[in-house]
């Protein structure tokens, strides 16, 4: 419920503060919105490029096949196997990992161990590759140095931590 109050109050404070500071708030809004439109214009090609490549990759079922080769190795570690495709997809596509989580909820229930683990992973990491591509291409930066592997490293730690925490708490 509290989260429903944040946006209205945030907007109220900004508009009220701008008003008492005698800023032409309407003019400011229009200028900012115009900037936003230019941003959209600039990021659209990279969004299209990313959606295109990600869709081809997902459609090929490469991950599922690669995963079936890994299966004998992973089963030795006593891991819940349904979680692996979701963990692998999480950095690439938010929608894809969300739909796998939805399947896990349908098959095992949201309060099962796998369900809780999926929820925690979904809530604790972000679509690293997608965000990097979007943010860097919006300002036309092509040399991103250690951003990618550092981000993926953080995701890996996040997924490992999710597994440990959920095992300990539930």
């Amino acid at each position: 419920m509290v989260s429903k109050l944040i946006i209205p109050i945030f907007i109220l404070i900004i508009v009220f503060y701008g008003f008492i500071k005698k800023v032409d708030i309407y003019d400011s809004f229009l200028n900012g919105a115009k900037e936003g439109l230019i941003t959209c214009f600039n990021i659209f090609p990279s969004i299209l490029a990313m959606v295109f490549a990600v869709n081809i990759f997902l459609e090929s079922n490469f991950l599922n096949t690669a995963f079936s080769f890994l299966l004998p190795v992973l089963s030795k570690f006593n891991l819940p196997l349904d979680i692996i495709p979701m963990a692998l997809l999480r950095p690439i596509s938010g929608t894809a990992s969300l739909s796998i989580m939805n399947d896990i909820f349908t098959n095992y229930g949201p309060d099962s161990f796998v369900g809780l683990l999926a929820s925690t992973i979904q809530g604790s990491t972000d679509t690293t590759i997608y965000v990097l591509a979007l943010y860097f291409s919006s300002i036309k930066v092509t040399k991103i140095k250690h951003a990618l592997y550092n981000g993926l490293f953080a995701d890996l730690i996040g997924i490992t931590a999710s597994f440990i925490v959920v095992s300990l708490l539930f």
Binding site: I14, G18, G32, A33, E35, G36
Partner: peptide
Amino acid sequence: IVLWTGIMKIAEDS
């Protein structure tokens, strides 16, 4: 994006 860059511009200008 257009809405929030507009709102945030007010916060920036003020």
